[in-house]
Design a protein around this nucleic acid. Structure first.
Length: 237
RNA sequence: CAAUUUUCACG
């Protein structure tokens, strides 16, 4: 059952073909198909597949649920995603770190920073330490909810817990600051990520800073950043 | 190397 076709129609066609060839789809077959739907944000199909496999007497496992939660997240269905997490708890399956990260990502898509933060607190009580991805996702959630102060705090928090922020962390923080039109802070972060953390800003980082300066009416500053970007070997598009 | 999680934009 090796499904490498990453487009959902193809994956589903393959599954049908398998059945017709007399091969019984197993958990992994379904999980793969759900994953294929996920990339296309086809959350309804993903949920349908879960039902279908249950009817076929195949029990979804943690990975199956995680894939489906992710699919719902991409389709902006937080409630469906959180319901799935409940379902798996009822089915005496233990949500794992990926489950939480996927649920938090679902909240992020819907700008539900409050729920994302709640979930992060909940996972701690269940003995899961938030990892880099957890933090990055929550920071991004704060960015979308216009909570740049919280985003700043989260970065400090992760550092104090020994998790090194990466390029994604900083880009998310930059977006948070950008949405708050904190152009000075945005610029400081851009400088700090390179000087203090050894992370090279990429095109996204620079573009975010430039946009912020433009929104703040700081045209000269925006221009200076473009110059720096070119010195860094990154070309504006 | 059979399946699952994070940033902007496009889709």
């Amino acid at each position: 059952a090796c499904v490498k076709a990453k487009e959902w129609q193809k994956a589903l066609a393959l599954k049908t073909a398998m059945r017709e060839a007399g091969i019984v789809p197993n958990v992994i077959t379904y999980s793969s198909c759900i994953s294929a739907c996920e990339k296309a944000a086809h959350w309804k199909k993903a949920v349908e597949l879960m039902d279908e496999m249950r009817k076929a007497g195949i029990e979804p496992n943690v990975i199956t649920y995680n894939a489906c939660i992710s699919a719902c997240g991409k389709g902006k269905q937080v409630d469906v995603a959180l319901n799935l997490k409940k379902q798996m708890e009822d089915a005496e399956l233990k949500p794992d770190l990926v489950t939480y990260n996927s649920c938090i990502a679902a909240c992020e898509k819907e700008k539900r920073a409050d729920r994302a933060l709640e979930l992060m607190a909940e996972m701690r009580t269940k003995g899961f330490a938030p990892d880099l991805i957890t933090y990055n996702t929550v920071i991004s959630a704060c960015a979308k909810a216009n909570m740049w102060e919280r985003a700043e705090k989260l970065v400090e928090e992760m550092i104090s817990e020994g998790i090194k922020p990466d390029l994604v962390s900083f880009n998310s923080l930059l977006h948070a600051l950008s949405n708050g039109i904190q152009w000075e802070k945005t610029y400081n972060v851009l400088v700090d990520m390179k000087r203090k953390h050894g992370i090279k800003p990429d095109l996204i980082s620079y573009a975010t800073c430039i946009t912020t300066c433009e929104n703040a009416g700081m045209w000269m500053r925006a221009y200076e950043i473009i110059i720096q970007m070119k010195q860094d070997g990154i070309e504006p598009l």
